[in-house]
C-alpha cells in the first residue's frame, strides 16, 4: 500500500469507526463521544496553528467563545434558526481571527504568546461587560425549540451525535487536505525554519495570517456547535482554562499530527472521567498520568506512533 493509501485508510477508518460506534455504544459513552468529537474539532483548529505552524497561542478560548456567542447571541437576540446561527458563529470567528492575526503577528515568540493571552482576557471581559446581552458568568440556555435544524431535533442523542460527527469529519478532512497541499507544507517549513522559508521566497507573514484565520475559524466552528448541541453559552468557555485545554489535548495526542487532537481529547476526557470515579483527588491522578506521558512520550501519542510504527503519519 502506498503512503497516500495508508493515510486515507487510517483517517477514513477512524471516521467509519465513529459512525459504527453510534449504533454500538451505551447511552453514557455515546453522549461522551459526541462531546469529545466537538472538543477534538476545537483541538484540530488549535493544532493547525500550534502543531503545524509552530505558533503557541494561550488565547484560543476567544475563538471558541466567538463561535459560541456568535451563534448563541444571534439565536437569542436576533431569532436566528440553527443553520444561519452556526454560520454567524463561524463568521464571527473568521472576523476575529483576521483582526487578531493582523495585529498579533507583528510580534513573535514569547511576546506573541502574551498578546494571545491578553486578547483572550479582553474577550472574556467584553462578555462580562455586556452582561445585559450575554448574561455574563451565568450564561444562557438555548431552548430545545431553538435547536431544530432542518426539522432535526438536535437535542435527540442520535441527531446530536451525527451533528458532532459531521463537524469532526469536516475538520479532520479539512486539516488533512490543508497539510497535504502546498500551503500546509509551507506552514510546516515555517515551523521548522522560518528564515529559510522566507529566503526561498515565501511570504511568511501572509502564511502565518492564513494559519491564524484557519485555526481561529475552525475553533469558532467548534464553539458554535458546542453551544448549539449542548444548549448553553457561558463566559466560562472564554476563560484561560479553555485556552489551556486544547494545548493539553494537542500535546498529549501529538502536536503536528492529524489524528493527535482526537486522541488527546479522548484520552483526557476519559482520564478525568475514570479518575474522578475512583478518588476525590482525581486531579492528582490526572497530573501524574500527564507527567508520565510527557516524560515517556514527549511527542504525544500520535508523535510516538509516527516515530515508532507509522512513519507516514501526516
Amino acid at each position: 500500500m502506498s503512503d497516500a493509501a495508508k493515510i486515507l485508510a487510517l483517517h477514513f477508518g477512524l471516521l467509519a469507526l465513529l459512525v459504527a460506534l453510534q449504533f454500538l455504544l451505551p447511552a453514557y459513552h455515546h453522549g461522551n463521544l459526541a462531546r469529545i468529537m466537538v472538543l477534538a474539532s476545537y483541538a484540530i483548529g488549535y493544532n493547525l496553528l500550534f502543531g503545524y505552524t509552530g505558533l503557541l497561542s494561550l488565547g484560543h478560548a476567544m475563538f471558541f467563545a466567538a463561535g459560541m456567542y456568535g451563534m448563541g447571541l444571534s439565536v437569542r437576540h436576533l431569532g436566528f434558526t440553527p443553520a444561519p446561527a452556526l454560520l454567524a458563529g463561524i463568521a464571527t470567528g473568521l472576523a476575529l481571527s483576521a483582526a487578531f492575526g493582523a495585529l498579533a503577528l507583528r510580534t513573535a515568540g514569547v511576546a506573541f504568546m502574551i498578546v494571545t493571552l491578553m486578547f483572550a482576557q479582553a474577550g472574556y471581559l467584553i462578555i462580562l461587560y455586556f452582561g445585559e446581552y450575554t448574561r455574563g458568568d451565568e450564561g444562557f440556555v438555548i431552548q430545545q425549540s431553538q435547536r431544530v435544524l432542518w426539522g432535526i431535533d438536535l437535542t435527540q442523542p442520535t441527531a446530536r451525535y451525527f451533528a458532532a460527527f459531521t463537524l469532526f469529519a469536516a475538520c479532520l478532512l479539512l486539516s488533512l487536505q490543508v497539510i497535504r497541499r502546498p500551503f500546509g507544507k509551507t506552514l510546516i517549513a515555517i515551523r521548522e525554519n522560518e528564515d529559510r522559508a522566507r529566503m526561498l521566497g515565501y511570504d511568511v507573514f501572509a502564511h502565518k495570517l492564513g494559519a491564524v484565520i484557519l485555526s481561529g475559524t475552525v475553533s469558532a466552528a467548534a464553539g458554535a456547535f458546542y453551544g448549539l448541541l449542548f444548549g448553553y453559552a457561558g463566559a466560562s468557555f472564554a476563560t484561560v482554562q479553555y485556552s489551556i485545554l486544547p494545548l493539553l489535548w494537542v500535546l498529549l495526542g501529538g502536536a503536528g499530527t492529524i489524528i493527535g487532537p482526537f486522541i488527546g481529547a479522548l484520552f483526557t476526557f476519559y482520564l478525568i472521567d475514570i479518575a474522578s470515579g475512583l478518588t476525590d483527588a482525581y486531579m492528582a491522578v490526572v497530573g501524574v498520568v500527564l507527567l508520565m506521558l510527557t516524560l515517556f512520550a514527549s511527542q504525544g501519542i500520535g508523535g510516538e506512533l509516527r516515530a515508532r510504527v507509522w512513519s507516514w503519519l501526516p
Partner: peptide, 22 residues
C-alpha cells in the same frame, strides 16, 4: 546561508521541493 540552514526534520526531497513549489 554561510551557517548551513536547511529544514533539518524534513527529507532532502521536501527541502528542495519547497524551492521548486514556490
Amino acid at each position: 546561508f554561510q551557517i548551513t540552514s536547511v529544514f533539518a526534520r524534513l527529507s532532502c526531497h521536501e527541502n528542495v521541493a519547497l524551492a521548486v513549489r514556490r
